[in-house]
Write a protein that binds this DNA or RNA. Structure first.
Lengths: 318, 318
DNA sequence: TAAAAATACTCCATAGGTATTTTAT
DNA sequence: ATAAAATACCTATGGAGTATTTTTA
């Protein structure tokens, strides 16, 4: 009959290690908080199931056999690893600790994360943040399939079964080629876009959909079907505008103070009703650590840069 | 209430790992040879005792949480180490496998081991032989205190509670300075030692005691109290004889074929009754792997060099 | 509605305890 | 003679089973 390792117990391993350390059944038992007969029986059972002698005993001496020493060594490894499991679990209870996979849409990530991550790391050093920059369409997939724990994206969330907490509203800015007619005004209004050729991002970016709906409302041209007028990234979009191919709308965080000098473009804010997007932190309704996400949302609201207006409404909805 | 890692079971860890692999309670249960409710209950108990969610489940999807993934990783380590314990134990059953701490007296070790160890390693590759060269007095101590598993020494064994198996008889040879009077004969007899100054080893070597008793019997001089005439090693003894300080008795294996040329000494065998020593393999009566030692003794008898007469009597005695 | 996980319950194997005996120095 | 390990015996916990219900895609 082969050895059935299934039958051994973590307690037995503890006893074996203790006896190897103490070389005395009574003391070993005490160190394990059990009685001597209990420990004796456990050691004996262990030796019987493995059909091996770990200890030579007399009433005066307990000695570890060489094979016993090797087994004790492995037993220590077992116990160390189980202790680490305990540590992991214990840490799991503290808020915002342990691994957290956070998605951010690419039209926000590069501009928000520099403000967010350093204070987050400082405030929650045990948080093991794994960031993924993914388009909204991919993000909701990954959220739903438990590949992400939470994500930062813009309303509306194109998925069901999600909870979310509002973060801030990010206004859009008008960005046209240098010397554009609208540059003469200090601010523009949505209606001014009428007749403009507005360049858009590729499919899958929520920013595209948001800009598109504004354009449709006010009657701007979008050349939707011609891929020459679509950009795969906001950086490309900037260059296209700088090259005079048209205008566009950019979210406020993505526009730097020296944008006009850097990209040879004209940047103008909108007057009310200001177009923009409402960012939220979203996660599966069923996520086991939803409190963590509420906490994270609160933290993001507090640390978002001033250009965006933090939403004071903390409700979690949908 | 803190986490009680004591309450987790190896079985639970197996289930956790299986579920993480299979992502399906039914299949995971089957792979563990238990029913689905059993596995469900175990996972739940595990999560409850650690107060952590390892898996997000719905009737369609099972997903591992990030913390769960870390815990699964440690659980794998635990199970790997337990498996290794099983392997160690399994190997422990095969004869002459695993660690074996063997003591050899210094007046034999260097001359026997070159004959013994290579074939032993070949015949029993799983044997992890640890050799210690120790004087008889130390060896019996270490045998008694389970610091050695077995030892090769000469009869009589100065300790109780030992079992032994005879190995071979090793004759003593007369060794005197070059040009010694006894060199004129092809062989000598014990009585020829009368009046000789015989050099001895230090205390603790059994060879000393054996030579001494012969000297006392035949009336040889031993200058017992003068440490100038005692050697700490057989190598020193050779040099002292070569330097003309006296004669000595050396065990046959310690004398090489070119001894006379190499050490400027005269070597002569004894005629019957030939003095010598009876070597045995000894171990604690209580040693759990006595069969291994009997096997080892048999092996040594078979592989001892021809100069010694292997004892055919295999009895284990005392 | 069908597959899958969770619940309800029953049972028995065993880990742990107390009291005592055996053993070896 | 005495300290220490082994044995005998008892109890209760909980791990594993079968049968069934609940859930959700």
């Amino acid at each position: 009959m082969p050895i059935d390792i299934t039958a051994v117990t973590l307690a037995e391993l503890r006893y074996v290690v203790a006896l190897s350390d103490q070389r005395h059944f009574g003391r070993a038992a005490k160190s394990c908080r059990v009685t001597q007969p209990t420990l004796s029986a456990a050691i004996k059972k262990f030796e019987t199931t493995l059909r091996v002698t770990l200890f030579e005993r007399s009433s005066k001496h307990v000695a570890v056999t060489p094979l016993g020493a090797q087994i004790v060594e492995e037993a220590r490894r077992v116990l160390d690893a189980t202790d680490r499991i305990g540590d992991l679990a214990a840490r799991g209870h503290r808020p915002l600790s342990g691994p957290l996979r956070l998605g951010v849409i690419p039209t926000l990530g590069p501009y928000l994360l520099p403000w967010l991550v350093p204070p987050l790391r400082e405030a929650y050093p045990d948080l093991q943040l794994v960031l993924r920059e993914v388009k909204t369409s991919v993000m909701v997939e990954e959220l739903a399939h438990s590949q992400l724990d939470a994500g930062i994206l813009a309303l509306p969330i194109p998925a069901r079964g999600m909870s979310s907490s509002p973060l801030f509203e990010e206004p859009f800015l008008f960005v046209g080629p240098s010397g554009h007619a609208l540059g003469k005004k200090t601010s523009v209004k949505e209606g001014d876009l009428e007749g403009e050729r507005v360049l858009l991002l590729d499919e899958g970016h929520c920013l595209r959909d948001q800009a598109l709906s504004i354009c449709n409302k006010v009657g701007a041209t979008t050349d939707d079907r011609e891929s020459d007028f679509r950009a795969t990234s906001m950086e490309t979009l900037r260059h296209m505008v700088g090259a005079g191919m048209g205008s566009t709308l950019l979210p406020a965080l993505a526009v730097s103070d020296d944008e006009e000098a850097r990209s040879h473009v004209t940047v103008r804010p909108f007057v009310a009703p200001q177009p923009g997007r409402r960012m939220v932190l979203a996660w599966r309704k069923t996520h086991p650590r939803a409190e963590d996400h509420a906490l994270l949302a609160e933290f993001i609201r507090k640390h978002a840069p001033d250009v965006v207006k933090s939403t004071r409404n903390h409700a979690t909805k949908k």
